[in-house]
Computed example of a mutant assay.
Amino acid sequence: MTNTENATGIIPSIDIALRPVNGKHIPAITSLQVAEIFGKKHSHVLRDIKGVLKQASVFFGESNFGLSEYELKNNLGFLVKHPMYIITKNGFIMLTMGYTGEKAMQFKEAYINRFNEMEKQLANRVPDDPTSLGLPDFRNPVEAAKAWALAIEEKQEVEGRLAIAEPKAAVYDEVVAPNVLTLTDFCRRLEGVNIMAVKRSLCMANVFYVAPDGGYRVYARYRDTHFAEKFDKDYGSRTFHVLPEGQKLLTRLYHDGKLIMKKGFTAPSRDKGVSHAA
């Protein structure tokens, strides 16, 4: 990160609002605001955020940086969605730690002070109207009884879902998972395929895509039907398992010449065949 100062040297209006981050509405700003405050291109702010997310723990990243979108009109007048992040106070401090310079320091101090003010206001606030916070009106006995009954019903529904899901998860972990190959292991069976470029090949085939954090993800239409994603929180890495339909898809791409090959290799004809068995 380079030294940065707002071009005007004037602190912009401090607009901190309650925004959703990891399922909670807390005081936050957006990456667009950070770009405006410090006179940076938004793309550079996104790059800096990705750098923070790569080095910080998964918990810190999810708790302080919420991926969102905003819309801008393109040259043809159509609205196009672009990525942005919603950032908490701690995320703001971590992100701007390397933004130096006298004016940058003033901007950071002003925003952190405003964050602290909002947190104090929220901590001391007892709303006259609980519904303004999306809560039931517990001052009304009928509404309070309804809210209590609904909470019990939701609790029972969640417990029922867990009771159904647990044996399924156990069966998958003990029976299915050991027999499912990882993407790397399966592609080793495809002679000549460049293992290091398989994910890039799947991106070109619109099966995978590159997420804002720079990692690869499976498009929803192929997730859990062709490929299963497993995220390891301890290492912050994602493993892809190839399901039977995914094995068929990879084999088809292989024979169609759509998987990047090692130097000196070419994809075989369709009649050669590839074994799917473990």
Rank of each mutant, 00 (worst) to 15 (best):
L53F: 04
T239W: 01
T88D: 03
V175P: 07
Y111R: 00
V126L: 04
H276Q: 14
P136G: 02
K120P: 00
L46V: 02
M1T: 13
D128T: 05
Y219E: 09
V126W: 00
M97R: 11
R200A: 13
K54E: 13
I10K: 14
L202F: 07
A144S: 01
Q247S: 03
Y111T: 00
I93C: 04
S31P: 11
E102V: 14
D256N: 15
Y70N: 12
M84S: 12
V180Y: 11
E36K: 14
T8K: 09
T2V: 14
E109H: 07
V207K: 02
K199M: 12
D234H: 06
G39V: 10
S269N: 13
V171K: 10
I93G: 04
Y99K: 05
A170L: 12
V176C: 06
S275D: 15
E119D: 01
E159F: 06
R125G: 00
V158W: 08
T8N: 14
S237T: 15
P178Q: 05
I93L: 06
I164M: 12
Q55F: 07
K40G: 04
T4I: 10
E174W: 06
G61F: 04
Y70K: 09
G61N: 03
S13I: 12
D213K: 07
R270L: 12
M204P: 02
E62R: 12
L202C: 05
A151L: 10
N90S: 12
F107P: 05
S237N: 10
N3F: 13
F265K: 06
E36A: 14
A56H: 05
Q247M: 03
M118C: 03
M94A: 13
H82F: 13
I112L: 01
K50G: 14
T225E: 05
H255V: 15
E117G: 00
Y254A: 06
L135A: 04
E5F: 12
L72I: 13
S68M: 06
Y85A: 08
